[in-house]
Computed example of a mutant assay.
Amino acid sequence: MDTRYTKLADLLVRHSTKLQKDEHVLIEAFDIPVEMTVALIRAVRAVGAHAHVAERSARILSELYRNEEKGLTTWADNDLHRMKQMQAYIGLRGGHNVSEQSIVPGEQMKRAARLYSKPVHFEQRVNHTKWCVLRWPSASMAQLAGKPTEEFEDFYFKVCCVDYAKMDAACAPLADRMRKTDKVHIKGPSETDLTFSIKNIGVVPCCGEKNIPDGECFTAPVRDSVNGVLQYNTPTVYNGQSFENIR
């Protein structure tokens, strides 16, 4: 067993979801090595909890997302019933082809999100379980980063398996400063020049509990305070679609 797998599994079980004895956790494994799923099951068992596994494939999901409404709602009903039995959720999302879901028309993807993802994940899983989600370092992900697969894997595990307790302490001064802040001004490459207020909005430091890797302190703008231009200078892929130079 790759020791990087066992270290990450232990982090997800003991830190991210803080699994307790006799709790149930659903592990959704999207196109990841079987060995990582096995490492997670063993880590769950080690704390006296119970692992449940759903193996997923991006290619198969692309077909399921194109089902008729009745098929989607029945699928959602079944998975919602299972999710309601869980106290925790760990989702590891790999993928052999970042464009796999581009075959699904936009309207059908929206329908699947409304009929399946919303009730199962956004309403039940997010609100009623201790959850953590993360990507898996596939060859396609390494390609997007412009790195060889092995080098990217090493990078991935290093940034995922940091000392999150130390990070939590390091985030405290930033979170405190943000709570005292009113005006924010962001200037960046291209045309990015944005101002807004975060006064009295609140700040949430994130240190490896919901997402891995982690390290953000997030807030949001005061409504109607945003002024300026935000231009993205890095390509990204979402639901199989590539986006560039969004302004």
Rank of each mutant, 00 (worst) to 15 (best):
121 H>V: 12
173 P>C: 01
94 G>Y: 00
120 V>M: 06
221 P>M: 05
2 D>Y: 04
90 I>G: 07
160 C>E: 04
143 Q>T: 11
15 H>P: 03
84 K>M: 13
2 D>N: 14
73 T>L: 10
201 I>S: 09
238 Y>T: 08
182 D>C: 04
57 S>N: 14
56 R>C: 15
41 I>D: 01
137 P>R: 04
71 G>M: 10
18 K>W: 03
83 M>R: 09
214 D>M: 02
103 I>N: 04
218 F>R: 02
16 S>I: 07
76 A>H: 01
86 M>Q: 15
182 D>S: 09
203 V>G: 06
159 V>R: 12
94 G>A: 14
202 G>N: 11
128 H>I: 03
47 V>Y: 01
207 C>K: 06
200 N>F: 04
126 V>F: 10
115 L>M: 09
158 K>A: 14
203 V>C: 11
73 T>R: 13
204 V>W: 05
50 H>K: 15
29 A>D: 11
58 A>V: 06
176 D>Y: 00
59 R>V: 11
119 P>A: 03
202 G>I: 07
78 N>Y: 11
164 Y>M: 08
195 T>Y: 09
33 P>N: 09
193 D>M: 14
194 L>P: 14
241 Q>N: 03
116 Y>T: 01
186 I>T: 02
217 C>M: 10
111 R>P: 01
185 H>N: 00
79 D>L: 12
237 V>S: 07
28 E>S: 14
234 T>N: 10
226 V>K: 10
68 E>I: 06
128 H>F: 13
188 G>C: 12
71 G>K: 11
25 V>A: 09
16 S>P: 03
135 R>V: 02
232 Y>P: 00
13 V>T: 04
199 K>F: 13
111 R>V: 04
87 Q>D: 15
78 N>V: 12
75 W>M: 13
137 P>M: 06
236 T>E: 03
176 D>I: 00
152 F>C: 08
159 V>G: 07
48 G>A: 05
20 Q>T: 08
104 V>T: 12
189 P>K: 14
124 Q>Y: 09
75 W>T: 02
110 K>N: 11
177 R>E: 05
28 E>H: 07
216 E>T: 04
32 I>A: 02
147 K>C: 12
89 Y>Q: 10
79 D>G: 00
161 C>G: 10
34 V>H: 13
38 V>Y: 02
3 T>M: 07
238 Y>V: 14
211 N>D: 04
232 Y>N: 08
220 A>M: 08
185 H>R: 04
160 C>M: 08
202 G>S: 10
203 V>E: 10
83 M>Q: 10
142 A>W: 09
37 T>F: 10
87 Q>L: 07
21 K>I: 07
207 C>F: 14
139 A>W: 01
105 P>H: 07
137 P>N: 06
66 R>L: 10
65 Y>T: 06
153 E>F: 09
109 M>P: 00
97 N>I: 11
34 V>M: 11
10 D>V: 01
172 A>R: 07
201 I>T: 12
133 V>S: 07
168 D>W: 01
125 R>P: 01
195 T>E: 15
2 D>L: 06
56 R>H: 15
107 E>I: 08
216 E>S: 06
223 R>M: 02
237 V>Q: 03
173 P>Y: 02
93 R>A: 15
17 T>G: 04
12 L>F: 05
42 R>A: 03
86 M>C: 13
141 M>F: 12
201 I>D: 03
31 D>N: 13
205 P>I: 06
195 T>S: 15
19 L>F: 08
131 W>P: 02
72 L>W: 01
200 N>R: 14
232 Y>E: 11
33 P>M: 09
149 T>K: 13
212 I>N: 01
